[in-house]
Amino acid sequence: MARTSPHDHPLTGAQPLYLRVATRLLGELRDGTVPPGERLPGERRLAEHFGVSRETVRQALEVLRRDGLLATDRRGSHAALPGRPARSPAALTFPVGARAAEPCTGDRATVTWEAPPREHAAALGLAPGRPTLVHRYTSETADGGGRRTAVTSFSAVALAEVEELARYRDRADGAASAQLRRAYDWMRRAGLTLHHRDTITPLTESPSVRVVRRVHDQYARPLEITDLLVDARQDALVYEFTLPAAG
C-alpha cells in the first residue's frame, strides 16, 4: 500500500483532518516560520493554532516525522527541512552590534524579571520600581579583547504583543541561558514595524564606545531600550539595517 505524504496532493477537504494539518504545518516550515533545527511549539499550542485536537496534531506530526521533515529528540520536535529558511529581508540578530566580529569564547545571555535602570524605565514609560523583562548579554573574543556587554529592558507593550518574549517571564531567574537572537523577528511576526534609533558616544579616557538603542513600533510605542558598551580597540562598529520595500 502506497504511503501518503502531505506533499503528495494539494490541500483538499477530502483529505483526513490530520493530513490537512500536516500540510499546513509543512507550509509554515517551508516559509521559515519555524527555521530548521528550531523546536516546534508543543502539541497543545499547535492544537490551539490549528483549531484541532491534540490527537490530530500528534497524527500530523507523525506524518512529517515519517517523511523525514521533523526530527525528534529529548528536547522535542525540530524542523528538518534541507537548506536555509526563507527569512525576512529585515531580519536583524538581537542584540544588534553586541556580537564581536571574531569568534567568541565568552558568549553569555540571561534574563531577569526586575525593575530596570531608571533611564530605561523612563524611556519605556514604566513607573519607577515596576519590574519588566531585562536581558543581559556578554561577548568576548578568543584573545580576551573586544569585550561587549548589552543590557536590554523590554516594555509592557512588547511583552503584551510578543508571545515569545512573554514566555520568558516564568524562567527569568538570571541563571539559565536565554539567547533572544530572533527577538526582532518575533516582534515583526506579531505585526510590529520596528524603528531603531542609535545614539553612539565615545567614552572619555577609555577605548570603549556606548551605544544606546531605542526601538519603537509604528504607533510610536516603545518596545525596548538597549545599553551597549563596546571595547572599540579592535573592532569597527558596523550596523546593518535592511528595510523592506513598500508593498
Score class of each variant (00 low, 15 high):
Gly174Gln: 09
Gly145Trp: 01
Asp31Trp: 09
Ala190Lys: 07
Ala100His: 11
Thr112His: 04
His78Met: 05
Glu48Leu: 15
Cys104Ala: 13
Ala245Cys: 11
Ala166Met: 01
Thr4Pro: 03
Arg213Leu: 13
Gln234Pro: 00
Ala127Arg: 11
Arg197Phe: 02
Asp227Val: 08
Pro244Arg: 00
Ala183Val: 01
Gly42Asp: 14
Arg169Ile: 02
Thr110Cys: 09
Tyr219Met: 10
Leu192Glu: 01
Pro41Gln: 01
Val230Gly: 03
Gln234Glu: 15
Ile225Pro: 12
His7Thr: 08
Val238Gly: 09
Pro244Asn: 00
Asp8Ile: 04
Tyr219Pro: 01
Gly129Phe: 10
Ala160Met: 02
Asp185Asn: 06
Met187Val: 06
Leu126Gly: 05
Arg188Pro: 00
Val151Asp: 04
Ile225Trp: 10
Tyr184Asp: 00
Arg108Gly: 04
Val162Met: 10
Pro82Phe: 05
Ser53Pro: 03
Ala178Ile: 09
Arg182Val: 00
Gly42Ser: 08
Ala2Asp: 11
Leu124Thr: 12
Ala150Arg: 10
Thr112Met: 05
Val96Pro: 14
Leu124Asn: 12
Gly144Lys: 06
Ala150Asp: 13
Glu140Phe: 02
Pro41Cys: 01
Gln15Met: 12
His120Phe: 08
Gln218Gly: 10
Ala80Cys: 12
Glu163Met: 08
Glu62Tyr: 10
Arg221Lys: 09
Ser153Glu: 02
Ala47Cys: 09
Thr23Gln: 11
Thr149Asn: 02
Gln234Gly: 15
Asp198Gln: 13
Ile225Leu: 15
Arg189Glu: 15
His78Gln: 07
Ala71Arg: 13
Gly125Asn: 05
Trp186Val: 00
Val211Asn: 10
Leu228Pro: 12
Thr201Trp: 11
Phe50Tyr: 14
Ala150Met: 08
Leu192Phe: 15
Gly129Arg: 14
Thr12Ala: 14
Arg44Gly: 01
Arg54Glu: 15
Ala122Ile: 09
Arg118Asn: 04
Val111Arg: 13
Arg118Pro: 06
Thr141Trp: 11
Leu203Asp: 12
Gly13Asp: 14
Val52Leu: 09
Gly83Gln: 13
Arg54Lys: 11
Arg3Leu: 12
Glu161Arg: 15
Gly13Pro: 01
Ala178Leu: 12
Thr12Tyr: 08
Val230Arg: 15
Pro82Ser: 07
Pro41Val: 01
His216Pro: 10
Gln15Val: 04
